[in-house]
Structures are given as C-alpha cells and as structure tokens.
Amino acid sequence: MTDALTFLKTRRSRPAKILTAPVPDREALEALLCTAARTPDHGKLEPWRFIVLEQAALRRLGALARSLAQTAGPEVVDPDKASQQFENGQLAVVVVASPKPCDRFPQIEQTYSAGAVCLALLNAALASGWGANWLSGWASHNRDFCTEALALAPHETVAGIVHIGTGPVQMPDRPRPDVTALTQWLNE
C-alpha cells in the first residue's frame, strides 16, 4: 500500500497540450476504464458513461467547437481556446454524467460519482505510466456542442474530458494548497 500512497502523494497531471502518440490501445484503455468504473457509486446506479474520442473524432469536434465559439463571439469565448484540446488531442475519454431517476440518492450525489470517475480514470492512466489531463472547457458546457458532437441526452452533461497519451516522465511540481489553512477540526 505504500506504493499507492507514494503515487497519490506525488501524482502530477501532464498538460493535455503536450501529450503525444503513442496512446493506449483499445485493450489498455478498456483496462483503464474498468479501473475508473470502480469508483464510489451509491445505489449502484452507474450514473455515468464513457465516450472514447480517437483522433479523427477529436478533429471533427475541434472544428465544431471552433464554429460554435465563433458564432458565440469573442466576448463569450476565444475560438482557439474552445477548440484547442480537440484539435491537438491524440485520445480522450469523455466522462458523461448520466443521472438516473432515484429518490434515495439525489442527483448531486450522482454528479459527485461522475466526478470521482474522472479522477479515477486520470489516476489510473498516470499510475499506468501514461500522461493524462482532466479538462472541461467551454464546449463541454455548451448544450449545442454536447447534443451535436456527443449525442448527449437532455439530462446528461460532461463531467470531464480526460486526455491520455505519452507525456514527459517527470513534471515539476506546482504550488500545493495549505491544508492547515483549509482544515477545521471539531471536537464537540
């Protein structure tokens, strides 16, 4: 278990814009998805699903994101920024939050589960030696993009887009939160 703790204490995402080929093949990616699917899920609802974006799909989505961003206008979003992760990506997994009707487990808990899947997938990729980065971005919150590009149902949203590829083995660390300043202890 100390290896797992060492990994978690030192893990560092690799920026999506510097990830290159090779990327995991289908078998390796399916293993990462199976690992991510072991996330906490109250009620076993599976309130999430995956969409794997290979390079041709990423390019198509990049063109759509750029077009929608241009229509929205520069005061809303920069078209280059909106499309960059798709235009430059090698392989990405969209984690779709897909809440199920359930009185016992509210939608917010299901949304948290989808976010946990994103982190589990990110960590599984990094622990397997791949470079990975969890992004969202303007397009992932744009309903037209989500409907046209990803065929999401009206109740579904993008929890995150996890880019996976080859990245540098080492990354400089970044400043980390001051946990002491962010922690409150209650004893009564």
Rank of each mutant, 00 (worst) to 15 (best):
L186C: 05
K17T: 09
R26E: 15
G89S: 07
A151S: 15
G165E: 10
L29V: 11
E109R: 03
W185T: 03
P79F: 12
F50I: 07
G131A: 09
A132P: 07
T111D: 14
T20V: 06
G165Y: 09
H155G: 05
C146A: 12
N88R: 14
R104L: 13
L8Y: 07
L152Y: 11
D80F: 08
T39F: 02
Q55S: 13
G89E: 11
D41A: 08
L121D: 07
L64S: 09
V179I: 14
G115K: 05
E46I: 09
I164D: 06
A116L: 01
A120E: 04
G129I: 04
V93S: 00
K44G: 12
G115L: 02
A16I: 05
A72H: 11
S13L: 03
P175V: 08
V23R: 06
H42W: 05
Q107D: 11
R59S: 11
Q85S: 14
A125T: 04
L32P: 05
M171Y: 08
P106T: 01
E148R: 15
A120P: 00
T147M: 10
V117N: 07
E30I: 08
C34F: 10
L19C: 11
A153I: 00
S67C: 09
P99T: 02
G89W: 07
I164W: 04
E30T: 13
A57V: 12
L68I: 10
A139N: 10
Q110M: 01
R60N: 12
E46S: 09
R104E: 14
V158N: 05
L186R: 13
T10R: 15
D25A: 06
K17I: 10
P99A: 01
P101A: 00
V76E: 15
R176Y: 05
G137M: 08
A132C: 03
D103A: 14
P79I: 10
G73Y: 13
N187I: 09
A125Q: 05
P15C: 08
G62S: 10
R66F: 12
V162H: 02
Q55E: 15
P172R: 12
F50E: 06
W48K: 01
P175D: 10
D3L: 12
V76Q: 15
R60Q: 15
P24K: 11
L33D: 11
T35S: 14
Y112E: 12
V77P: 07
T157V: 07
T111C: 08
I108V: 14
Q110D: 02
A16R: 12
T6V: 08
V77Y: 11
S140G: 14
A153P: 00
R49Y: 06
D41L: 05
T2Q: 14
E27D: 15
L61R: 13
A114V: 02
V52Y: 10
A127V: 02
E46L: 09
A31R: 15
W185S: 08
T39I: 00
W130P: 04
V117W: 09
A151C: 12
V93N: 01
M1G: 15
K9Y: 11
L122T: 03
R11S: 00
A116Y: 01
R49K: 14
R174V: 11
R104I: 05
T6Y: 13
A92I: 09
A82P: 12
K17A: 13
V158H: 03
A97G: 03
